[in-house]
Design a binder for these strands. Structure first.
Lengths: 202, 202
DNA sequence: GTCTATATACTGATAGAC
DNA sequence: GTCTATCAGTATATAGAC
């Protein structure tokens, strides 16, 4: 009986629910303090079990952190249409920013803090973010490249550069938003930025 | 005898040098691990004195962190011409990015990590970053506003929005650069971004 | 699967000699 | 001004009962 055994019914349903509750608690803790400062005891308390009990499900703090990131990736992949292509990809990107701001503000916090913390080469999830940025940048770059082929890219705009600045605007705005949530509309700003790079209406 | 007593000669020169060495060591430590994970013992070791000895100069970890930020602000103020005005302000901004990337990469790390960590309202330097972003954003906004008066702003561009996106690009690029230093030219990207907002040659 | 108890290590800060 | 010694707190992780 592995982890791929059906989880909705049977003796593993409770375990799966437990794991999910722990991950949710971990998001709460790590999003407000980062990985280093966040404690397993705090996570365990919020999940309603002891710290040793938590370590039965995730053998180490590092494993828990990885589980959180994997869970979040699965969530994003289910919601976001990565295969839209060209302009629709960029529209979906703006929608994602809007969704994150209104529906999952804790995950915005989590990634804002972790992406900074994990720049240190020996950080437990450094490699995750290294790969993540490579993938995201290449993905956005491909979208701009598609637009270039159909002449929808503003003259003089380079695809790689456009991808870099677009991702940078998204990340930078998250920081500003976390310091002053009422006066920053992340989606609107990202939309404006992308609009300044293309010739067609977003 | 206060801290404003001449430091170059006399019995206070050594103390000032000691404090400076400690601050330099603190930049090293906090820039690679952040405030929470960075330890006073590590800082003390690098500065060549005991942990208790360090606490004679800075009564707490929080005080040391504040001293680092204040020192950095003084440095920046001495180098950066804040009163240039209009287009020259924006040019100085690009120069600053270039300078930081080539001359003070550790401070880029420090601010990238801390600006994320300190989004938590109870972080020791949360208020510092809150105020810092308010000041910087208003400063850049004023520069764009000056350009608007002389018709040097691209039609449809709002000063506040331009300031937000410009600062966001700067912050976001720092993260990307820290993950892949060889393939990101921060100054060039910032210049490109600002150029897309104004009608005159930067 | 969950618990209590604990091992081990490290933290920031203090006390007091010199 | 700097040190050694130490305190009290917290951390992750493990051992073993149930």
């Amino acid at each position: 009986m592995t982890a791929t055994t059906p989880r909705v019914r049977g003796e593993y349903a409770k375990t799966a629910a437990r794991r999910q509750a722990i991950i949710a608690a971990a998001v709460e803790v790590f999003s407000s303090t980062g990985f280093h400062k966040g404690s397993l005891r705090d996570v365990a308390d919020r999940a309603g079990l002891s710290q040793a009990g938590l370590l039965h499900h995730f053998p180490s703090k590092h494993h828990l952190m990885q589980a959180v990131l994997t869970w979040r990736d699965d969530q994003a992949q289910a919601r976001f249409d990565f295969d839209a292509g060209g302009l629709d990809t960029l529209r979906a990107l703006v929608d994602l920013v809007e969704f994150n701001q209104t529906e999952t503000p804790e995950l915005v916090e989590l990634f804002a803090i972790l992406s900074g913390e994990a720049t240190a080469p020996d950080h437990p999830v450094h490699d995750y973010f290294l790969r993540r940025y490579a993938v995201v940048l290449d993905f956005v770059r491909a979208a701009f490249a598609e637009l270039a082929e159909t002449g929808q890219l503003r003259p003089g705009v380079d695809g790689t550069s456009a991808a870099r600045s677009t991702v940078a605007v998204m990340d930078g705005l998250q920081i500003q938003w976390l310091y002053d949530r009422d006066s920053v509309d992340m989606a609107a700003e990202v939309r404006r930025h992308i609009q300044s790079l293309v010739t067609v209406e977003l």
